[in-house]
């Protein structure tokens, strides 16, 4: 059997005689290993035992007797992010909680997946207008699957988890981000800070620019008042 280091592209160069066509498979290491990796990952997806709000109750119901998440190999809820593969963001993400969630995500070992469960985690939901609510966890974390509902029923969550499994089936070790040879620390997401409001450190420049503009405006107003007086 012939394998090529570059995967797909080069395989077409090899000619297989017609009489062997049924017995020979031309593939690559990645193509051979991907199904094995993906099969084991999709069937032992350990969620982080981490509930935020109402959706957590339905998440627990999914894990309990009637819906029985262990049919999918996912019943092992881990309390430590170091042992977990899947973060189910189950509920409203508040500003006070957001730094902790990002930190938990950073602590999870790769491969790691994020499932946003319910309206609040996906976009703020009914509490979006609140002053202490983050309008969607995807403002801070890369989300793989969104499950709608308020809260989603256990059936909906199971459906979302199956969608996650299908997504995992599409993965290839050749392209998976965590096999890149860059510095592993470089992939840590920036943890937001709690200032007068939640501060996304990726927006610091914008915040400074806005502040400078506001200060200029205040000074201009003060000068105008002075001039008129």
């Amino acid at each position: 059997m012939t394998t090529t280091p570059n995967g797909n592209g080069a395989t077409s160069e090899i000619e297989v005689p017609d009489e062997l066509a049924n017995s020979v498979v031309i593939t690559s290491i990645a193509k051979l290993l991907d199904p094995i990796y993906n099969w084991s990952r999709r069937n032992s997806l350990w969620p982080l035992g981490f509930g935020l709000a109402c959706c957590a109750i339905e998440m627990i119901c999914t894990a309990a007797s009637r819906f029985d998440i262990s049919r999918f190999g996912m019943e092992v809820f881990r309390a430590s992010p170091r042992q977990a593969d899947l973060m189910i963001v189950s509920g409203t993400v508040t500003k006070k909680m957001a730094p902790i969630i990002v930190r938990l995500y950073n602590q999870m070992a790769e491969p790691r997946y994020v499932l946003s469960m319910g309206a609040c985690a996906s976009g703020g939901g009914p509490f979006k207008e609140g002053y202490n609510v983050v309008d969607g966890i995807d403002k801070f974390l890369p989300v793989d699957v969104y499950v709608p509902g308020c809260p989603p029923t256990p059936q909906a969550l199971v459906n979302g988890l199956i969608a996650m499994q299908e997504k995992i089936d599409q993965q290839s070790i050749a392209t998976a981000p965590w096999y890149r040879k860059s510095d592993p620390g470089a992939d840590l997401l920036p943890v937001p800070l709690l200032g007068p409001d939640l501060v996304d450190v990726r927006q610091l420049d914008l915040i400074r620019k806005e502040a400078a503009a506001a200060n200029e405006r205040i000074e201009a107003e003060a000068a105008a008042v002075e001039a008129s007086a």
Partner: peptide, 27 residues
């Protein structure tokens, strides 16, 4: 969508003229 009207595109606001000093508050 409310975030389209917010300059940060997020559910945040800061006091007028507030700029982060660098020694940010730790939770």
């Amino acid at each position: 969508r409310a975030e389209e009207k917010n300059v940060y595109g997020k559910n945040v606001q800061y006091p007028e003229g507030w700029a982060p000093s660098g020694a940010e508050y730790e939770a």
